[in-house]
Simulated scan of single mutants.
Amino acid sequence: MLLHRYGTPSHRLERVMTKVAASLGVEAIFLYTPTALVVSIKDAEGETTVVRRVDSGEVHVDKLFRADDVLSKLEAKEITIDLATKQLQSIDDSPPPYPFPVRSIACAISCGAIAVLLHGSRADFVAASMIGFCIAGIERAQTQFGQERNLVQPVAGFVAAIVSLAIAHFVMPIDDRLVTLAGLIVLIPGLSLTVALTELAVGHLSAGGARLAGALVSLLTLFLGVAIAWRFAQSWQNVPLQPDDPHWLWQWGALIIAPIAFAIVFQARVAQWPVIILVSLLGIFVSRSVNPFYGVEVATFAAAFAVGCGSNLYARMRDRPALIALTPAMIILVPGSIGYRSLSAMLDHQTIEGVEFGFNTLLIAVCLVGGLLTSNAVVPPKHIL
């Protein structure tokens, strides 16, 4: 359940568990969905089926890294099952590699970098960073007070929208909608949408369908908070400015800083940063190089293919999980922002534009899935994770 809790997709999780069971001489069948885990074990006395209610959590790269190391030792029979259980429990109980202030600053910087990548101004960068810091505080408060996770999305959406409107109206001219989108980027379920389509593509229909529904509901509840803020502060809304694109140095700075910030957000240790940065920059470079010639669809496919090949190559060379480099790199490519814009257009009664954005979201997600699956065929990962 530790692998499930920290971001392992169903098709990878089931294969890992089946492989470990086979190495231990146990005949078992596993079925995983985002909210349930079914294990059926056969022995001389018959078949025993166990059902566990589980909840998926945030991606935690470091714990996935350490858990994979324990499972590799168990598969090689270097440690016993009891020792492996104790070590996995120790990993689960271990504190995060970065204290909350560091993660909050990383969240703020990642939101500001996304604002720059969306061609926002310097003022947009500052405002988005402030909102990202607030979002980190909201998530922290939810954890401390034990509130339901589903309350975070509408509250965060409302706070992000109302703060961006207040800054635009009372403090300095910014594009409040761009800033709201950038400030919420760590909560927009673009990665979940891509993972869900990947699970559906490889035949894991129950897990993929459940995850897809969950991603759509998360996006809707997030946008619910935004919509309420827009109605509440309707008099603050101004026509968004169209500032000049930020200087190319800002663009390149954001491209370099964003992978590091997301690496911290996803709890990757410093030793794992270099491969995350390299794979992320590879995906961005391929996307921006291909897009002017062949369009966003081909560029997205090529970028996902490059990220997948780079991650799998790292996995083969270092005997480590490909998810370490793959997950932070994919967050920059996923189409969650377009899905948000689709709902925004619908709220403004721009139905045709909203439908177009929604279709583009699905199309880009499919292109990402196609690129990742193709990369797995060209450069098969040595590890299942």
Results as ranks from 00 to 15, higher is better:
residue 3 L to Q: 04
residue 12 R to L: 14
residue 13 L to I: 08
residue 14 E to S: 09
residue 16 V to R: 06
residue 16 V to G: 07
residue 22 A to E: 15
residue 24 L to G: 02
residue 26 V to C: 10
residue 26 V to H: 10
residue 29 I to D: 14
residue 35 T to L: 05
residue 37 L to H: 12
residue 37 L to M: 15
residue 37 L to G: 05
residue 38 V to M: 12
residue 39 V to L: 13
residue 47 E to S: 12
residue 48 T to G: 03
residue 48 T to C: 07
residue 52 R to W: 05
residue 57 G to I: 03
residue 59 V to T: 14
residue 62 D to W: 11
residue 64 L to N: 03
residue 67 A to E: 01
residue 67 A to V: 01
residue 68 D to K: 06
residue 77 K to S: 14
residue 79 I to K: 09
residue 81 I to D: 10
residue 82 D to E: 15
residue 82 D to F: 04
residue 84 A to P: 02
residue 90 S to G: 11
residue 93 D to I: 01
residue 94 S to M: 13
residue 100 F to K: 02
residue 109 I to M: 14
residue 111 C to M: 07
residue 117 L to G: 04
residue 129 S to Y: 00
residue 132 G to L: 00
residue 147 Q to F: 15
residue 153 Q to I: 03
residue 153 Q to E: 13
residue 159 V to D: 07
residue 177 R to G: 05
residue 184 L to R: 00
residue 187 L to W: 00
residue 188 I to R: 03
residue 189 P to T: 06
residue 191 L to T: 06
residue 196 A to N: 05
residue 201 A to H: 00
residue 201 A to T: 08
residue 202 V to H: 01
residue 204 H to Q: 10
residue 209 G to V: 09
residue 211 R to W: 03
residue 215 A to T: 06
residue 217 V to C: 09
residue 220 L to Y: 02
residue 224 L to W: 08
residue 225 G to Y: 00
residue 227 A to Y: 12
residue 227 A to H: 10
residue 230 W to Q: 13
residue 230 W to F: 14
residue 232 F to P: 09
residue 232 F to N: 06
residue 238 N to L: 14
residue 239 V to T: 15
residue 252 W to V: 13
residue 258 A to W: 03
residue 260 I to G: 07
residue 264 I to L: 09
residue 275 V to L: 07
residue 277 I to H: 08
residue 279 V to K: 02
residue 280 S to H: 06
residue 288 R to F: 13
residue 289 S to W: 15
residue 296 V to K: 12
residue 301 F to W: 10
residue 303 A to Q: 09
residue 304 A to N: 04
residue 306 A to K: 08
residue 306 A to N: 06
residue 309 C to W: 01
residue 316 R to H: 11
residue 316 R to T: 13
residue 317 M to H: 11
residue 323 L to N: 11
residue 324 I to R: 10
residue 328 P to N: 06
residue 329 A to L: 03
residue 331 I to T: 04
residue 332 I to N: 04
residue 335 P to I: 01
residue 339 G to H: 00
residue 340 Y to W: 06
residue 342 S to Y: 05
residue 344 S to Q: 13
residue 353 E to I: 10
residue 357 F to I: 00
residue 358 G to Y: 09
residue 359 F to M: 15
residue 360 N to F: 06
residue 360 N to T: 10
residue 362 L to V: 15
residue 366 V to R: 09
residue 366 V to S: 11
residue 369 V to K: 02
residue 370 G to W: 02
residue 370 G to M: 12
residue 371 G to Y: 03
residue 372 L to Q: 08
residue 375 S to C: 05
residue 376 N to S: 13
residue 377 A to Q: 11
residue 382 K to Y: 13
residue 383 H to D: 11
residue 384 I to E: 07
residue 385 L to Q: 01
